[in-house]
Design a protein around this nucleic acid. Structure first.
Lengths: 243, 243
DNA sequence: ACAAAATTTTAGACTAATCTAAAAATATAT
DNA sequence: ATATATTTTTAGATTAGTCTAAAATTTTGT
């Protein structure tokens, strides 16, 4: 039999819950999560600082816990942190975040393409798989999947060096009357939203022509794949990414 | 964006590092590991109690830590524990252990069959993947792999209900002169042992005929696949499983 | 510009899982 | 059979990550 200490590891007296190594720095599972969330929220806020409260909301912890963690991440030089002013990632922090996001999105491709999961079922599983620590595994998985550039939600997959494929999506809600666009992604990944799209047969890659924009509620009348008439609320239109 | 609390979860004030749920009981990552190791050591010791020191050795912790954990696992009724007398698994504990072992071995098949890893490279990665908590994922992975009964080391894979395929392997060291056998598994998974076998082209499923057993050191002279003469030490012969 | 509201940080406490050192129980050897 | 050695457990401490409550800072509204 051959065992090894798998994901808990004691360094000196210190217990780390799942480690990965970047430049010989130990990164805990929890730290990876914070960095990933900071990356995604910064991206969503066009590069602006992310606030403690926003982080508390998305890590599902309390602001006090976030403050503690921010102090720690700042000490390790993963984030730029001025008290009360929110945070952004340093270069080092961004590389770690991109590594986690890369794994998350590759696993999502695996779950959909190889195991036949729906795009509404994969998030929570990928949330676990994204922390598996093996460079070689990530590389081989990437090759096995055919080096995909985008995940099943249309999100770009960073390459091994952390470089993101460039994307220039617009929201469907920004598209004007009679324009034809291709559905490229979603900006919300909640199962209920994705299932709503499934019901209307709106899938990645489908054609959408804007036939009508309601004056009343800004809902959209669409022609799907030059065949089917359908209507989506403005809420849906704001979360559909097209080009 | 859609986040969820992935693998750390607070119940009341309690922090769990990675949870899985069996009968609504929360099982931490660490508990899963202890149960798995108790299962494997009990199996190896023909159903006899496992000692605290043996567990400390295999969990890579100290005996004092093991004692603490045993108390906890006994409280939750995962193990039968009489102080100073070692432990065995209860039915509940065994089911959890078998679930972890099932995932470990399925992932090993995936790593070798789909990603092209060598059998000497997969243990540490599977050690992480075995804790991914999703019934549906395990089921789909199992189907994707063609419902394998054995992993790349020849170890049996328990089914979804925890039932192990029955195996009746013998050690090569128990085989008598001139017998022909098929290589079915290994009882040690260390990379160095597996690489040693690779060098000699000893693989799962190969034919081995015992041509010679040295009086001096009990090493074995073998005929591999009716073609190649080779010699293995008694140490190797004891860890090759055949039938 | 200042008071009130909101946000963020600090202080102090808790849990899981570990540790070391010491005490208790069991096993071994003469 | 008893002293010694080994193994196991207990006691007390530590760390990461969380919590609540209170204090500090920033933002907002008049």
């Amino acid at each position: 039999m051959y065992f090894c200490k798998p994901r808990l590891s004691a360094i000196g007296n210190r217990l780390f819950f799942k480690l990965s190594t970047v430049d010989n720095q130990l990164i805990s599972f929890t730290e990876e999560n914070y960095l990933k969330i900071i990356y995604l929220l910064t991206e969503r806020h066009n590069g602006n600082e992310v606030s403690t409260n926003k982080l508390a909301e998305h890590t599902q912890t309390k602001a006090a816990s976030v403050s503690d963690m921010l102090r720690k991440l700042a000490e390790k030089n993963y984030i730029n942190y001025r008290k009360y002013q929110g945070v952004t990632l340093t270069e080092a922090g961004e590389q770690i975040a991109l590594g986690v996001i890369r794994k998350h999105r590759l696993w999502e491709v695996f779950l959909v393409e190889k195991l036949g999961f729906g795009w509404d079922e994969i998030h929570d599983i990928a949330e676990q798989l994204e922390h598996i620590d093996s460079k070689e595994l990530t590389k081989r998985l990437d090759d096995f999947l055919g080096n995909p550039q985008f995940d099943p939600h249309g999100d770009p997959i960073p390459d091994a060096k952390g470089k993101m494929p460039s994307v220039s999506y617009q929201k469907l809600s920004e598209i004007t009357l009679n324009q034809s666009v291709v559905m490229m992604g979603v900006s919300v990944h909640s199962p209920s939203f994705l299932q709503h799209l499934d019901k209307q047969q709106i899938t990645l890659g489908c054609d959408l022509k804007v036939l009508e924009i309601s004056d009343f509620d800004k809902s959209y009348g669409l022609l799907l794949n030059n065949k089917i008439r359908l209507f989506v609320s403005n809420e849906v239109a704001r979360n559909l990414l097209v080009c």
